[in-house]
Design a protein around this nucleic acid. Structure first.
Lengths: 223, 223
DNA sequence: CGCGCAGATATTGTATACAATTCTGGACTG
DNA sequence: CAGTCCAGAATTGTATACAATATCTGCGCG
């Protein structure tokens, strides 16, 4: 057998992840055309897996495909930010309530990552920072024991990550985010569903308002 | 120009709808293998648009694709029913609250369809009945003015329709569903967010319990 | 200056071919 | 007789090429 562990992934799977990452980080900007031939060459694949990947991302709401006209990166308007956070709050509130009812101990989801996040802030590694944020909330969602909810939230996180990359800077990213994460995890672990829901609401509304405040400074840009 | 309105749809789009419909109505049953060559022949298309359609349905959670092993119709366990209704309640509660805040008049969404549904019950046209049900709730969701929420709910409805087709009969389908729809639409139109949310909760929990009760009769079938 | 049409461009759909992986059934071995 | 292994079948994954269709662009013409 091979010394190196063989990646069992198909080209479609890696391609979806790479393309999603490229859109999330702004390498392909909002409204930009995604020409199949160009993408296929850039990612060293043929058009078949590429088309499948585009269809998947279309399903996630990251790209828009018009028949015979091609794909573009979906534009993001300020209202999208409000709507997405509204939706995310509803989904994640359900998640933390269910997790609290089960007394799920999600505290290690913070302790493990808290100092890593601090280091990322220090070095300005924004992508790492956002990934840690997402991973924490993903663990929280998984604690709900509702796979369908986890899947729905997973789809929304693509959009959230796009917003973060587009509008957050080290100076904008709240320094006490991980403090809020800890309090949230504690409430869940103690079975305090109402407290967890309220902490989540505060956490998300402040995050959203921080983004919106930053947005007004720079004008209604669609990146 | 042509007399007949030309369908501007691509094969992928029609294929997704046809395949989804086939799975929803049980033509392909849970766990059944979906062989690409066979499907391509059955729907008179080549494998490329077929693969794209399967990827889309995989994203909707209707099929499961294993690398090099092919696609199957996703099995539905009783816990899935509970989880899906839990998720749906959270999403739709947000929708009706937002709709109520806007005093959205969704009452014609019931009046138009109420007698049509009664006729469908009479003639035993279950598929028509389910479609009317979905259309009402889709109108309700649209009244929230949150496209992302509408999209999320749309994805969940594929699963809900599967459950309905699998477990509901004319005798099981509640006769006063459309009465509840009317009350819900009235509350929304009067801007009574709390009342609408409570009516929705009752509507969905009774629907769910009816399905679960029917399920225990027949045993834990995965159709 | 506006309009329309032809060519260029791009995408979609399809066919074909082949590689890679998984599954299957039976022969072989202990 | 049970278990293993292997060759071939079946299926999926990918690449290439090409026809059909739709869109876009720019030029000529009235």
């Amino acid at each position: 057998m091979d010394v190196l562990a063989r990646a069992p992934e198909t080209r479609f799977e890696t391609l979806v992840d790479e393309l999603r990452e490229a859109i999330l980080t702004g390498r392909y900007r909002a409204g930009e055309r995604l020409v199949q031939e160009d993408l296929a060459e850039a990612f060293r694949v043929s058009r078949i897996p590429l088309r499948e990947a585009l269809r998947r991302l279309e399903g996630e709401g990251l790209v828009i495909i018009s028949p015979n006209r091609g794909a573009i990166v979906r534009p993001l308007a300020p209202k999208d930010i409000v709507d997405l956070y509204d939706l995310r709050l509803a989904l994640e509130t359900l998640a933390v309530r269910r997790a609290a009812e089960r007394y799920a101990d999600v505290r290690e989801a913070t302790t493990r990552r808290r100092e890593e996040a601090a280091a990322a802030v220090e070095s300005g590694a924004l992508t790492t920072l956002f990934r840690l944020d997402r991973d924490f909330h993903a663990d929280l969602a998984a604690a709900s024991d509702n796979p369908h909810l986890v899947a729905a939230l997973g789809g929304q996180w693509s959009q959230i990550m796009r917003i973060m990359h587009a509008y957050l800077r080290v100076g904008t990213y709240a320094p006490n985010v991980w403090q809020e994460h800890s309090g949230l995890a504690d409430a869940v672990a103690h079975g305090d569903a109402d407290g967890a829901a309220e902490r989540l609401r505060l956490h998300l509304t402040t995050s959203r308002d921080r983004i919106l405040a930053d947005l007004w400074d720079k004008g209604p840009v669609s990146r």
